[in-house]
């Protein structure tokens, strides 16, 4: 097997299908999770290819070993983040750690084998798999003994005709005409006024109606309105006034 053949080694894994060098490229670009790749499958593919060729290219084997070792180290670091101390163990401790982990994995594999056997055993077990059962409706809460007279009294109180809604607030709107007349009188007297001062003592509703009257006067062309900036006093002048704008 030549060095070129190592890079071209075709792989058919669960997580990847394609040549070995493409797998390396994807891993280096972080486009493939190395933790999803079964490195053992790559080794098996390499060995199978070597057996097919019936020749042993030591250079190719060396290159492959280096690449696979690098992959394994990367994968180990990815699988055990924050376990740098484990990777830096002395050989004796590392051997113990490896043996412990292999033992744990062997137990898991044996347990999986037992489950597989059990599944085969229970292959002839058929049972109903339905949707989740409809939960039973909660039992109605028991009421303490009731006094009929007090229930009737409660019902009577509930059945009382509600009071008619008050329309008093509707009657507090003074007519616009009232303010039209008032403003015209002021204008005829002095030719101008400050709106804010004129309505200062009025309620908010009256101020709103007064403002409508002011707009009416402006619409009719009787006054000019001036305000230097928002929220500044509004100055009103009769159109004949020399200071009107």
């Amino acid at each position: 097997m030549t060095g070129v053949a190592v890079r071209d080694l075709p792989l058919d894994l669960d997580a990847f299908q394609g040549p070995f060098d493409l797998l390396l490229t994807l891993v280096l670009r972080d486009e493939l999770e190395l933790s999803d790749v079964e490195v053992a499958e790559i080794v098996l593919a390499f060995v199978a290819r070597a057996v097919e060729r019936e020749t042993l290219d030591l250079e190719a084997c060396g290159e492959f070993l280096v690449l696979v070792a690098a992959l394994l180290e990367l994968k180990a670091r990815e699988l055990f983040p924050g376990e740098e101390d484990v990777l830096d163990l002395d050989p004796e401790e590392a051997a113990d750690e490896l043996a412990e982990r292999l033992a744990a994995y062997r137990r898991v594999k044996a347990a999986a084998g037992w489950l597989d056997w059990r599944l085969g055993e229970s292959g002839e077990r058929w049972f109903r798999v339905g949707p989740a059962p409809v939960p039973v409706a909660a039992a109605p809460q028991e009421l303490p003994p009731q006094n009929v007279a007090s229930l009737a009294e409660a019902m009577r109180r509930l059945a009382v005709e509600p009071p008619a809604p008050s329309l008093r607030h509707m009657g507090t709107f003074p007519p616009v005409s009232q303010f039209l007349a008032r403003f015209r009188a002021v204008l005829s007297r002095s030719g101008r006024f400050l709106f804010d001062r004129e309505v200062a003592r009025l309620s908010r509703v009256e101020q709103a109606v007064a403002f409508l009257a002011l707009l009416e006067l402006r619409k009719a062309g009787e006054v000019t309105i001036r305000q230097l900036a928002p929220f500044e006093p509004i100055s009103v002048a009769a159109c004949s006034s020399p200071t009107s704008a």
Partner: peptide, 13 residues
């Protein structure tokens, strides 16, 4: 279910 660490260690050695 097996998986004795000491036995595995001995085999590795």
């Amino acid at each position: 279910l097996g998986g004795d660490a000491a036995e595995i260690r001995a085999r590795l050695e």
